[in-house]
Design a protein around this nucleic acid. Structure first.
Length: 614
DNA sequence: CGACGCGCGACTT
DNA sequence: TCGCGCGTCG
């Protein structure tokens, strides 16, 4: 997930640690719907009439999207040991187990006397059904994981008074499929290791036995951990469906992204649907998300950050604070630069060239983007720098450029590289109104079409920069080419159903699940009547300092006007509406300009959506 | 020699 | 996931 060592280099200096989400519980002051004017105008002192015309504002809950998949893997990881018999953890239990093992082996049992791999027997090895005992174990495991998740979610909704939107991963995008199959092989190896390491152990001294068994147990635990991130597909789908039904019964809105959750989360955030994102994934950084909360609850014992006895603390990372990172200098880095850096340094979609890490990638990107001489497209220059800077071994396969025979190798890397960039820049996401769409669609088929989401000027500017390189340009201008990478949109009604989890994605959506239609699903939540609270007396501190109000300022007791951080905040109080005017990723330097941008005004912005907006 | 990248082994809940 | 030691490169 994401780039390897980037969070440790950024969070300590640029992030705000120990961020207590309970400080968000007072919610947010927003200008009410009819006051839908650009934030700049609000700075003009109000006349008495205008001031008395009330209420100009309303209070609403803070909306947060949660990358649930991160939590799920954490939960699986943390409780992974429970998939194994807990008796492994005590001396006594181990003694009993080893005895059982011997017996089982003597009787030539197919099960290798290993009850640990309960789940894996289902499909991995013999295809047999798990025993009742094993099923019992799986059920406990799943309920432990789900309880863990629900506990956290409930904390956020009740203690922090947040309006949460859970986002889940969908299918694997085409570009990632190769990498995934690689990973599957590794996982399989780990699983086998875990299963096979239980070799028949002849009688030995008690002491030896104890030591040996302990070692074995430890190594198996670690093998199990390695295998743990990719638990049995069967178990996973069980967990998945149970989770969904739990979410439904708790009336928690959720959304299943068409493909990866990252892009979906970024889309939600950049369109102003949510105010912040809770995740563990570093990819969100380069997707232009304004506020990300990492390490909620502090996960590792070694790292005490965000750990507290009561409540959950997190590390808040604001986009504009990125430049202040001390571990790595990202001063004045735009979103494109971050994307290119991530891809260069090796991400989920594209392995880095040997010898290129985060530091080298940063240096190259800074050098190329900040230098003025630009007869050569930036992407081309970055690629050439990468060829130059990587380890000798790799370099000799790529350079010199004059060597035509090495063109093939360069093309191979370039393909992956550009695909990864495209994946970050134009993920396929689900929009409740438009269905599956390509975020920041700049393709020829799209431009000028009214049903598409407009793309901000800053995004265009950055994208133009990338498109100077012909191969990339061809990639993003043609939807078909893009579909080959980011995936294909589904038919609108199917997209709806899948986003709501009404259709089993594993079966390519052919078989619908039986779901009580009365259950609230994603965008049915119209619960909060925020305007009703407007009559309360609330201290309002007008935003005097700029267009964007700091998240933490908003909530440290006093409440400020939300100036919708450069776009139009959806004035409606429901998740069911996505602010159409809001734009995608902007570099930290440009503020409200994009909401006034010509292309926005020119584009026949879908008024039909605005209707629902108010 | 220093910096960077990478792999291994600690341990978590 | 984090920290540490080693290899490689400049």
């Amino acid at each position: 997930m994401g780039v390897n060592g980037i969070l440790p280099r950024i969070l300590p200096s640029a992030g705000r640690e120990n961020y207590d989400l309970r400080s968000l519980k007072d919610g947010l002051i927003v200008l009410s719907a009819d006051d839908d004017i650009p934030s700049r105008k609000r700075k003009i002192p109000q006349t008495r009439e205008q001031a008395s015309k009330k209420p100009a504002w309303a209070r609403r809950k803070i909306r947060v999207a949660i990358d649930l998949n991160g939590w799920i893997s954490r939960a699986c990881h943390g409780h992974g040991a429970y998939l194994m018999d807990e008796r492994h953890l005590s001396y006594h239990g181990r003694a009993i187990l080893s005895k059982q093992r011997v017996e089982n082996n003597d009787s030539g049992n197919v099960n290798v006397g290993n009850e640990l791999s309960a789940a894996n027997y289902v499909d991995d090895i013999t295809g047999e059904l798990p025993s009742a005992f094993q099923q019992q174990q799986q059920v406990e495991y799943i309920s432990k994981c789900i309880n863990f998740l629900l506990q956290r979610i409930t904390y956020l909704t009740s203690e922090c008074n947040l309006q949460v939107l859970l986002v889940l991963d969908g299918s694997t995008p085409p570009i990632k499929q190769i990498a995934v199959s690689d990973r599957r092989d590794k996982r399989r190896k780990a699983v086998n290791e875990r299963d096979n390491e239980c070799i028949p152990r002849k009688q030995a001294d008690d002491e030896d036995e104890a030591i040996a068994t302990e070692k074995e147990a430890l190594s198996r635990i670690s093998a199990s951990k390695r295998a743990g991130s990719g638990i049995d597909p069967n178990l996973r789908s069980m967990l998945h469906s149970q989770l969904l039904s739990q979410l439904r019964s708790h009336s928690l809105p959720f959304l299943i992204a068409p493909y990866e959750a990252d892009g979906q989360l970024a889309y939600l955030s950049n369109n102003g649907v949510v105010d912040a994102i809770i995740t563990e994934d570093s990819d969100l950084i380069c997707l232009g998300v304004k506020r990300i909360i990492y390490k909620l609850g502090g996960w590792n014992g070694a790292n005490e950050t965000n750990r507290s006895t009561q409540g959950l603390k997190g590390t808040l990372l604001c986009r504009k604070d990125l430049g202040s990172a001390r571990g790595i200098d990202l001063m004045d880095f735009s979103d494109v630069m971050l994307v290119v850096m991530f891809v260069s340094a090796g991400c989920d979609y594209c392995n880095s060239l040997k010898g290129i890490g985060i530091v080298t990638a940063r240096d190259i990107v800074a050098q190329v983007f900040f230098s003025q001489d630009a007869d050569v497209p930036v992407l081309k220059r970055v690629l050439h720098e990468l060829y130059q800077m990587c380890h000798k071994e790799a370099r000799e396969q790529l350079l010199p450029l004059e060597d035509e025979r090495k063109e093939w190798a360069r093309r191979a890397y370039e393909r992956a590289f550009l695909g990864a960039v495209a994946m970050y820049r134009h993920p396929l996401v689900h929009d409740p109104f438009l269905g599956d769409v390509i975020a920041n669609d700049v393709s020829r088929e799209c431009v000028g079409r009214s049903e598409s989401v407009p793309v901000s000027t800053s995004f265009w500017r950055d994208e133009d920069l990338l498109m100077e390189y012909e191969p990339y340009r061809n990639l993003v201008l043609h939807r078909e080419a893009l579909y080959e990478i980011v995936g294909r949109p589904r038919a609108p009604c199917m997209a709806q159903k899948m986003a709501r989890g009404l259709v089993d994605k594993l079966n390519q959506g052919e078989r619908e699940r039986e779901v009580d239609p009365a259950h609230p699903t994603l965008f049915d939540v119209r619960n909060e009547d925020h305007l009703a609270e407007a009559s309360e007396t609330v201290k309002v501190v007008h935003n005097t300092q700029g267009d964007e109000v700091d998240f933490h300022q908003l909530v440290q007791g006093t409440v400020s006007c939300l100036s919708s951080s450069g776009g139009l905040q959806p004035s409606s109080q429901e998740f069911s509406v996505i602010g159409r005017g809001t734009q995608q990723s902007k570099s930290s330097s440009d503020k409200t300009l994009s909401s006034l941008s010509p292309d926005l005004l020119a584009s026949p912005s879908p008024a039909k959506h605005h209707v629902m907006n108010n």
